Simulated assay, not measured.
Amino acid sequence: MKRAIMRNVQNFIFLMFTFASGVFYFCFYLSAIALGLALSFTVVGIPLLTNVLRTSQTFVQYERIQTKIYTDISIEPLAARQRAEGNQWMQAKAELTDGRNWRIVYWLMQKFTIGISSLLIGVIIYIAPVLFVLVPLFYRYTEINFWGMAVDTELKALLIMSLGIILMIGCSKIGNGLVQLIGGYTRLMFKAIRG
């Protein structure tokens, strides 16, 4: 029982990390690349784009580690890249023309949609059943409606609590499968990045 509860908490944390990281990647790369392209006619834009693309390697390794910790899906790390020889402009050219950087950014930005669905899954599968179980404690103090039915008696509150318990048991198995599916996205991302 304790192991199942810990697994559900771990799954919920993974889903929330997926949401947070997906929003972060989307906002970070969208704003940084747009700003870098807008400033590319000045001296500031190209170094900004170069440094933003260098972060992609770090973020994709973070995704691999996060997936391993929370879903126990093992993925081989990407081979470390060597910085290009030469002055700053030669290094910038090497970073900007490396297709692998742009593939990583593409896959990390796609994580935004997966993050939004992770938030919805986390709330529906893990938060809602817990709230249903807590209805008998709060129905006297606040107005609670469940699908148009006012929860104003103890019998109705106990019915919703029993529905919450059933959902906890059923959604636990569904949640495990969905977390493995979302973790599989990272494996797919690494396969696509390697080419």
Rank of each mutant, 00 (worst) to 15 (best):
I160D: 03
Q57N: 11
V123I: 09
L53P: 09
A157D: 02
T113Q: 11
Q57S: 14
D152T: 01
E95D: 01
D152G: 03
Y139R: 06
K156R: 12
N101D: 01
I73Y: 08
E63N: 13
R100S: 12
R140D: 13
G122N: 00
M90E: 13
A150M: 09
W102G: 09
Y106Q: 06
Q110Y: 13
R54S: 03
R100E: 13
T58P: 09
L131M: 14
T67M: 06
L159F: 15
M149V: 15
R54P: 10
V123R: 06
R103D: 00
Q88L: 13
A79Y: 12
F132M: 15
I46E: 00
R83T: 11
T97Y: 04
T113V: 11
L155Y: 15
A150L: 09
K68I: 03
Q66G: 03
Y126A: 15
T153A: 02
R83C: 06
Q82N: 12
S40A: 11
S56P: 05
L49M: 14
L96K: 00
I104W: 01
K68S: 09
V105C: 00
W89I: 11
Q91C: 04
V130M: 15
W102F: 02
P129H: 04
D98G: 00
P77E: 04
R54H: 13
I144V: 08
V123Y: 13
W89E: 08
I144C: 05
L49R: 05
I160T: 01
V44E: 03
S74D: 15
N87I: 02
V44N: 08
S40G: 10
L131T: 06
Q88P: 05
L131W: 10
E143N: 09
G86T: 04
Y70D: 03
E143R: 14
S56F: 06
F132D: 04
A128K: 13
T153M: 01
T55K: 01
E76R: 12
E143K: 14
Y70Q: 00
A92E: 02
S56Y: 03
T67D: 08
K68A: 13
L158C: 06
G86P: 05
F132N: 03
T113E: 08
N145D: 12
A150W: 12
Y70P: 03
Q57V: 10
I124M: 08
R64Q: 03
E85P: 01
T97F: 11
L158Y: 15
Q82W: 03
W89F: 12
R64T: 02
L78T: 03
V44K: 08
R100H: 04
I116R: 04
G45D: 02
I125L: 15
S118R: 05
L49D: 03
I124T: 11
E95I: 00
G99A: 00
Q110W: 15
L119W: 10
E95K: 07
V133R: 06
F41A: 14
M90F: 10
N145Q: 13
V52Q: 07
